[in-house]
Design a protein around this nucleic acid. Sequence first.
DNA 1: TCTATAATTGAAAATGATTTTCAAATACTC
DNA 2: GAGTATTTGAAAATCATTTTCAATTATAGA
Lengths: 141, 141
Amino acid sequence: MSVENWLTEFRSQGYRLTDARRAVVETVAKSPRALTPAEIHDLAKEQYPKLGLVTVYRTLEKLEELNLVQRVHQEQGCNAYLAHAEGHQHLLICQKCKKAVYFDGDDLNASFAKVGEKHGFIVQEHWLQLFGICEECRENE
Amino acid sequence: MSVENWLTEFRSQGYRLTDARRAVVETVAKSPRALTPAEIHDLAKEQYPKLGLVTVYRTLEKLEELNLVQRVHQEQGCNAYLAHAEGHQHLLICQKCKKAVYFDGDDLNASFAKVGEKHGFIVQEHWLQLFGICEECRENE
DNA sequence: TCTATAATTGAAAATGATTTTCAAATACTC
DNA sequence: GAGTATTTGAAAATCATTTTCAATTATAGA
Ligand SMILES: [Mn+2]
Ligand SMILES: [Mn+2]
Ligand SMILES: [Zn+2]
Ligand SMILES: [Zn+2]
């Protein structure tokens, strides 16, 4: 989903379009990796220097509510945000450059249900993330 | 691993055995679900009323270092602690009573590697949690 | 058992991330 | 363009976690 779509989505929910929001949205939408609120603030200020950190938090809250971003959990912290993929997807994250790639793991659902069954559970959701090293990072030795 | 083993492990690392630590360790070891530091504090105080919250944090830090507990990440928060399983295991968590059960997902590793390959990644770690409703909770209507 | 000592404790203060408050600025409707 | 409700950033408040510190305690050794 493009930046323009995000902003349109914003408008159609009755939210106003401001320079501050534009800067936050564009920063998150363009980033190949999950960013913390503080990182978003730093980056987005290059585009809109007046931007306050509070507005970053407030905008992320709305983006999350509209399902345009998702929070990414990692060993180093659980408060980084990434553009959301369409539908149900999972993340593959490079441990070196932090780049995040989505994949669908639909073929795993049967296995998950079976694991649950074995323990008397009916599985309703799952949470899966893979970590590794991307091609680019392997090449740059 | 039993409570006594945990305490022995503690001692063998040169740490002293105190009533405060005993209370924290027993609380976490006995719990069927992941607990936050504040919850541990509340529960362990029944056994050792003088217990300070600081000591809960400090004891958890050591338990984590000794690999006796692990931090559990959930939608509601990422700071709950659970007795660790032996070796590499994954969690199946009841959405109603929060009970946590470990399972090994070794048969999934090949699938994970394949997903990575498709995107140029060499997968080195993964993070998997299943959520559902346990048998007991389904029975109690 | 008693003593010496280093580890551990809890209270209080400090920190750091996030949230709330509020008056000024602004985006959008008419 | 004017009127109004929304949004803003600064500052204050909050909340979880960490640090500081003087008092307490566990343990090794006499
Ligand atoms: Mn899936
Ligand atoms: Mn596994
Ligand atoms: Zn990489
Ligand atoms: Zn249950």
